[in-house]
Amino acid sequence: MKFINRPKFLGCNLFFAILGVLIVLFGTPFSLERHPIVMVLNSNPSIEKYRTVHNEFKDALGFPVIDVDISTEWMTKTRLQNKILDESPDVIFCIGSQAYLMANEIDPEGNIIFSMAINWKRFDLGKNSKGISMELNPQLELFVFKYLFPDIKTIGMIYSEKFNREWVDLAVNSAKSMDINLEVVSIDEVTQPLDSLKRISDSIDAFWVIHDPLVLANKATVVDLFSFLNERKIPSFVYNKAFAGLGAALVISPDLPTIGRQGAQYVESLVLGSKATDESVQIPAGSHLSVNLKVVSDFALNFNEDGLHMVNEIIDE
C-alpha cells in the first residue's frame, strides 16, 4: 500500500514545488482577486440622503467595503484612528463634511474622497484628497431654466463676493453663451438682501436662489425674500427642496445616487491607477428636477411641456 501511494505523494510534492516557483515568479494567484480595502465613513447614516449615496456607492462598487458610522458616541476620534490603522484602507470614501474632516485629520496623506459636503472650498484639503462637490455647474442649470421656461430672458441673482465670486463669474459667462441676461447684485455683511432684490425686481423675469450664507443669513430673511417674490409673481429657481414650500417654481439639485456612483468610479480609478476625470474635485454629474406646477399655473408662466419628461418630480399639483 505504501509503495502504491508513494508516486502520488511525490506528484503532490512536485505540484506544490511548481506552484511555489510560480508564486515566487508571478505573485500569489489570490492577489489577482484581492479587492482593494475601501472604508466608507458616513457622517450620519440615519439621514436619508447620506444613506442614498452610501447604498448607491456600494452597489456601483460591487465588492464589500468597511462601513463606519461616525455619528455614534462610541466612535470617538481615537477609536476611528485605531480602526483606520488596523484596516489600512486603500481609499476612504467620506459622506458628509464631518466624515471628511475627521478622516483628513487622522490620515492627511491618505487617499480620501469627500462627498455631500457643502462649501468644500473651506476645507484644508489633504494631499491625496479628492471629491465630488455639491454645486451643479451653472451651465446645466441655465440650460434647464431656458428649456423649461422659454419666455424667461432676464434672471436676477444676489450673492456675496466672499463666498461665490468664482461661481457667479462662471454663471454670468455661461448665461451670455445662452443668450440669457443674468442680473447679479453682490452684497456684503451690512447689505440687506431684500433691498437688493427690490432694486432689481422690476427688470427680472425670474430669481435664482443660490447657496450663499450672506444672502440666506437667517430664516426671517429667507421668508421675506420669498414673500416679496410671490407677491410680485416672480418665479424662483432654487437649489434645495426645502424652499419648495415657500413657493419656488423649480428645484434643481444634484442627483444623490449619481454622487454615489461617481464616488465608486473615483475609487476604481485610484485603485487601478486609471484616470476617471481630469479634475480632482468633480461636480455632480447628475441633476434632480422638481417643478411646482401650481406655481407655474398661479404665476401664469409659459412652461414647456415637452420638458416634462426631464422632470423627476412634480410637486404640489
Binding site: L140, F143, D255, R261, T277, E279, Q282, S287, M310
Partner: peptide, 17 residues
Amino acid sequence: LIVPKDIDALMAVEFGM
C-alpha cells in the same frame, strides 16, 4: 457612468466627467 438624464450625460462630457 449612469446619470438621470441625457442632458446630464451631455454636460458630463462638457465638464470632463
